[in-house]
Design a protein around this nucleic acid. Structure first.
Lengths: 231, 231
DNA sequence: TGTACATCAGTGAACGCGCGTTCACTGATGTAC
DNA sequence: TGTACATCAGTGAACGCGCGTTCACTGATGTAC
């Protein structure tokens, strides 16, 4: 709004730095991100980058934060494409969007959910809220479906007590407004699609199953059935 | 057998190189493996390593091959601890051993199933047979359980036709001696435990579910039920 | 059993390259009067 | 409107470090007669 010309230029340079960093990571792996290489590609000298990020770690943190938020945005947008009452449709749209985002942004996905970068540790106070944003898209759908009576209680399994207690504590601490069972199936769903997507990213799955998109949808439907999601 | 003294010394040096490489990877990440650092730790100069591995890639390949074989050994050993007719017991032992191996050898696990090392590509003719060794432990249990009538056919789902066709082709090409459904559930099981284990390795799962060991077993049982494995 | 020779492990110097970060500086852009 | 000054982006040199790989070599170990 009241941004000066200088502030706008500065912001666009910050964005350009991140864009080139992403390109390099895509080509060389996330661990290969180098300030000197970025500067070279921008036609600048390396010390100039220190005007924009105080050091290499700060740049990595910015990239990670962007990635979490972009992923969450994609999930929110996918959720919005379906009628509010179509709970399985919304859930499927979100899961498909998750995989699609990972496949179209493989580097960003590895940055947030793959091998950690040696010598770098993400500050939790920065990353956790961004993670929660994405996760709560799924939780909201489950909560609304449950409220609408669209979750089959008969399918609900008895959880091992220590896990149930842990989930109840999470719910109270973070105010999730879902039952332990719904939180549980959300976590299980997350581990399942994560396994498929990461194996696909590393090219381990295609030779084994062939059509991964179809496989993914089939497994999503199995998950919905186990969750007790109706429709 | 007819190994000379020189050959024995040579072999033990090759092993020492690998051991130190593993330690460095555990401390610094898989991408940080450096010949100079290994040589330094061995009290040698870097060029001496070229007597044992023709280059850095050859050393990485040797480490990967060792890791696949050690994992397969662990699965075979776990399978052998249960009575032959106890199919669910054998399967559970194997899945638990898989996770335990990954947790006690996190670096090796990341080396074979995590982010690829930038600039390195594993030669498939070396790795594929080692992968198949581990996978066939699970397939054998499923095959024997099926032959013994211990797989509930009623639980079998109709697979999407393109996937079924792909699996049938794999079975014929590689001579797997199981039904498409059994191969399918083996693959699904693999993606599921992989997702859990990798999230656990990266410390993303513990804050969400608490007792991961219990969670893992609970999910394994759910998997057996979906497979139709009796007992 | 002793000697001559071949094999092989390991060295040290070098090549050419990369990296993150600090520092004193230049020169352009923007601001106050 | 014009001038003096402050702010800030970016430079170039430097520090101290790392890497994989090649090469001619030394010196110890093993082998053949």
């Amino acid at each position: 709004l009241s941004e000066t010309r200088r502030e706008r230029l500065r912001e666009s340079t910050r964005e350009e730095i991140k864009a080139i960093a992403r390109r390099h990571m895509a080509e060389q792996g996330t661990a290969a991100m180098s300030l000197r290489a970025i500067a070279r590609d921008m036609g600048m000298t390396a010390p100039a980058l220190y005007r924009y990020y105080i050091d290499r770690d700060a740049l990595i943190t910015a990239l990670i934060l962007d990635a979490f938020n972009a992923l969450a945005d994609a999930l929110v947008a996918a959720d919005a494409t379906r009628a509010r009452g179509d709970y399985t449709g919304r859930m499927m749209a979100v899961l498909v969007a998750y995989r699609e985002w990972a496949l179209t942004h493989p580097t960003d996905f590895q940055l947030i959910y793959g091998n950690p970068i040696p010598g770098y540790e993400a500050p939790r106070e920065v990353t956790v809220p961004a993670v929660v944003r994405g996760f709560s898209v799924v939780l909201t759908i489950l909560k609304e479906a449950s409220t609408a009576g669209q979750v089959d209680v008969a399918r609900q399994q008895r959880l091992p007590p220590p896990i149930e207690h842990f989930l109840i504590e999470s719910i109270q601490r973070d105010g999730y407004a879902v039952s332990p069972w719904l939180l549980y199936v959300a976590v299980v769903g997350w581990t399942r699609i994560y396994g498929i997507i990461l194996l696909e990213l590393f090219n381990h799955l295609q030779p084994v199953i062939g059509d991964i998109e179809l496989f993914y949808q089939f497994e999503a439907e199995n998950l919905f059935r186990q969750m007790g999601l109706k429709g």
